[in-house]
Amino acid sequence: MTDLSPARLERPSAVSFLGYTLGLVIVFWCLAGAGFSIDKVMSSPPRFADFASRAFPPNMDPQVLARLGWKMVETLQIAVAGAVIGVILSVPIALVAARGLIAGPAVNQIVRTLLGFIRAVPEIAWALVFVVAVGLGPFAGMLAIVVDTIGFCGRFFADDMEGTDKGPAESLTATGARKIDVVACATIPAAMPAFISTGLFALEKAVRSSTILGLVGAGGIGIELKVGFDLFDYPTAMTVILMIAVVVIAIEQLSGWARIRIIGDQQ
């Protein structure tokens, strides 16, 4: 009986062999650039154990917990305020970014490029810019979250609207409706489940970002993390890290639950 199935491994051609080699070289070059050192990897477990022994148990002093708790509340306020304003502002921006909706291709491209630029700049850099513009404090952090949310939602809301079924919009166009009415009555309602889902992701992202804004003085719990490490107060720093983890996971759960409650009944 002859075996008709192909060989398990094909011999790579010269070109693909060259490709694999080049890929490997690039990876090693990057490791070198990143200061990769076996010595440091080997010596890190004891150092890490040293940090852990000094950080545990976390600081559970009620007074400290109350102070950190309030800082956490401020963090969430920054995140929610920034995300809500960002989501609201994203809708009109997405309308001009979406192809074939109300603006022409040139405008779509310009707006999409601007949104790409906003996303390319990390939120911590936006926070630095706003600290310069409006001074230290949570307001600078909130503005950074607003801008970051617009970069994210502006683009994905536009994609969501481009992806909706064009049928209802065509039928409303057939009644003689204006473009703006068609968008309001057909496109936006059809894209609403996607908007809600994207908006909740934006909120999760905002909560994660808001916890580190304090590192650059833009409000929130991040400042406590920085002070804890600067003063070698590792137990307090550990409390902050655990709080952040708990809050971020809780927000993700909550948003997952809300997503199912609001749009899950679609199916």
Partner: peptide
């Protein structure tokens, strides 16, 4: 116009 696919706006 009554289109073949009805084309109602869902959720409304």
């Amino acid at each position: 116009l009554v289109s073949q696919k009805h084309n109602l706006v869902p959720r409304l």
